[in-house]
């Protein structure tokens, strides 16, 4: 019998994350093309609630591994649970949505099981032989890779593949009782720190407003934040701004920061060093605001304004406010 296709589901507050719905969307497409079953796996201290929700999005079966020991994410307990399920049911492919957690888990388990892993997948041909397209050199190049054995683990980039939608049916939820080994707990989570943030992270944002060297001083980011507030956007920064200590490294977009692909990316006072451009080049629409008409950023933007960002950005903010009423 042909082997199943699975999606790994990350839950937050009892609900599947958007990237996980994208993972299940892609897995569903693959399962449909091959005429095989679609499975979903939810792991966590409150996996049951998210599993009941995921069951509506088209899988044939949902495995819910719930255990108080899985409250805080830790690599090895999660790898134990998912690994045991993969060994028991032998899926051909497991699709993960890209996140720090998913990359961490997929890497550990791929090494353990000798699985074929491709990360950050942005394209997939799956009707015949499975071929994945993934960026390398932060997206300056892409590779098409084939796989030499199963299972295949894929982590897919957010905002690339459409998310699954509820299909009117509800799949069976199979409860799984994890069996751990002592060594799964070599690492102890002492504390979880959730920063007070009014805004989404750049990796999860649909819109990002970024500021670079042209911001001149950290306090000037207030004008970026005002525009971001109007747009419901995340605030990003170039490497120059982060290295100057103006913004936290977690905001950095670029080859040594985060590689993002929002619907709209607004670059303010960013000249467009290649190491920044590769970090945002997969954005659907790019806007540049810069006073230097020769800045490289204008060559890669969809829309640009040549002008002083300290005048232009507040004017744009006001226009957005007016339009949104």
């Amino acid at each position: 019998m042909a082997k199943d296709i699975w999606a790994f589901i990350e839950a937050r507050d009892g609900k599947p994350r958007k990237i996980s719905l994208e993972a299940i969307g892609k897995a569903k497409e693959l399962a449909g093309a091959r005429g095989v079953k679609l499975g979903a796996v939810v792991i966590g201290a409150d996996a049951g609630a998210a599993a009941a929700e995921v069951a509506k999005y088209g899988p044939d079966v949902v495995y819910a591994a719930e255990d108080a020991k899985l409250k805080d994410y830790s690599t090895e307990p999660y790898a134990r649970v998912l690994g045991d399920l993969v060994k028991e049911h032998s899926p051909a492919v497991v699709v993960f949505g890209v996140s720090i957690l998913a990359k961490d888990l997929a890497a550990r388990l791929a090494a353990r099981l000798g699985a074929s892993l491709a990360g950050d997948v942005v394209g997939l041909e799956g009707d015949g032989e499975l071929v994945a397209t993934r960026p390398v050199y932060a997206g300056k190049a892409q590779t098409k890779v084939g796989f030499k054995g199963e299972p295949v683990f894929l982590t897919i980039r957010p905002n690339v593949f459409p998310a699954a939608t509820p299909d009117g049916k509800t799949a069976e939820v199979v409860k799984v009782s994890p069996k751990f080994e002592d060594k799964d707990f070599r690492v102890q989570v002492k504390e979880t720190i959730i920063p007070k943030k009014e805004r989404v992270d750049v990796l999860e944002a649909d819109i990002i407003v970024s500021g670079g060297r042209g911001m001149k001083a950290p306090e000037n980011y207030a004008i970026i934040e005002k525009l971001a507030d109007q747009l419901g956007a995340a605030v990003g920064a170039s490497r120059a701004a982060v290295d100057a200590g103006w913004r936290p490294y977690s905001d950095q977009v670029g080859q040594t920061g985060k590689v993002v692909g929002p619907n709209l990316y607004v670059a303010c006072g960013i000249s467009g060093a290649i190491q920044h451009l590769v970090g945002m080049s997969s954005s659907k629409v790019i806007v540049a605001i810069n006073k230097d008409p020769d800045a490289p950023i204008f060559k890669v933007c969809d829309y640009g304004i040549v002008g002083d960002l300290f005048e232009v950005v507040p004017a744009v903010t006001e226009e957005v406010r007016k339009r949104k009423g």
Partner: peptide
């Protein structure tokens, strides 16, 4: 981790 951090002892 994703939007948060952990302090870990090993």
């Amino acid at each position: 981790l994703d939007g948060y951090s952990q302090v870990i002892e090993v």
